[in-house]
Simulated scan of single mutants.
Amino acid sequence: MNSPSARRLGNIVSASFILALGATAALADSTGVVFSDGNKFLEQTGEAIYASVCQACHMEQGQGAVGAGKYPALAKNEKLEAAGYPVYLVIHGQKAMPPLGGMLDDEQIAAVVDYIRTHFGNNYTDPVTTDDVKSSR
């Protein structure tokens, strides 16, 4: 890259790359999207965790899906009545459900399990505590 045209091309490519990164960051900031850093999810509310982590498989309204795998419906799901069951599944996973216990802390797990147990036609209002989560780890 000793010729002036090669240096100019290199500068254009570098500037384009920097602008693209800046545009991506600005877009992310302006929409409120949170990008997780490393192998931990940053979202804190049950709703945000569900939208970022769970919704891709269990769908927006918790209706579940069948395709490359079978993703059970969370909507009107009687198996969610006992809080220990979804807590265990979120931590340890099962079948197509990946174990998320290493990527979510106790507060995040309690929050997302509380969210799915009180939304999508579920009305299981006894709260999940961080002690419940700790005892399932």
Rank of each mutant, 00 (worst) to 15 (best):
F120P: 05
P127S: 05
V112W: 02
M103D: 15
A111V: 01
D105G: 14
Y115K: 05
Y124V: 01
D105I: 13
N122E: 00
E107A: 15
T125L: 13
A110G: 07
Y124M: 01
M103N: 15
Y115D: 04
G101Y: 09
V112H: 07
I109K: 02
H119D: 03
N122M: 01
D105Y: 12
A111D: 05
P98M: 11
N123A: 13
I109Q: 07
R117P: 02
D105V: 12
L100H: 12
L100A: 10
V128Y: 00
D126R: 12
V113R: 05
V112Q: 06
N122G: 00
I109G: 10
I116H: 03
E107C: 11
P98F: 07
N123F: 12
V128L: 08
P127G: 03
L100P: 09
D106E: 15
A110V: 09
V128C: 03
P127I: 06
Y124D: 07
D106P: 11
E107T: 15
P99S: 14
A110R: 01
M103V: 15
D114G: 01
V112F: 04
A110N: 04
I116F: 00
N123D: 14
P99K: 12
I116D: 02
Y124S: 08
Q108M: 09
P98E: 10
R117K: 08
V112G: 01
L100K: 08
P98Q: 12
I116L: 07
D106N: 14
G101I: 10
D126G: 12
V113Q: 06
V113G: 00
R117Y: 03
M103T: 15
I116Q: 04
I109H: 03
Y115Q: 00
I109M: 07
I116N: 05
N122Y: 04
